[in-house]
Amino acid sequence: MSQGITGPINYRCPQCLFRAIDYDLLYDKDVDEYYCRRCNWEGEELEILSFYSVYKQQYKHMLKRWTVNEIEAKDES
C-alpha cells in the first residue's frame, strides 16, 4: 500500500463529522479511496458526499433567510 496523501480535495472524515470531530482523511491514490486514521471509515468520494448531504439535514433552515423583523416576530404567540 502506498503512502496516504491529502486528496485532490481535502475532505474531512464523514463519520467523525457526525461525532463533531474535524479529522482530515488521507487519500490512497492506488485504489482511489479515502480513509480515516482515527475511526474505521474508508470509502470513495461519492460516499463522502452522500454522508455530507445527510449531515447538512440537521440545518433545516440552512437556506432560509430570517430578517430582523422576521426574527422579532418568530414564535411570539
Binding site: Y59, K60, H61, I71, K74, D75
Partner: peptide, 10 residues
C-alpha cells in the same frame, strides 16, 4: 431564537 435548525427553540 433558532434560525438554523428549524425549531421553535429559544
Amino acid at each position: 431564537k433558532d434560525t438554523l435548525f428549524g425549531t421553535k427553540n429559544q
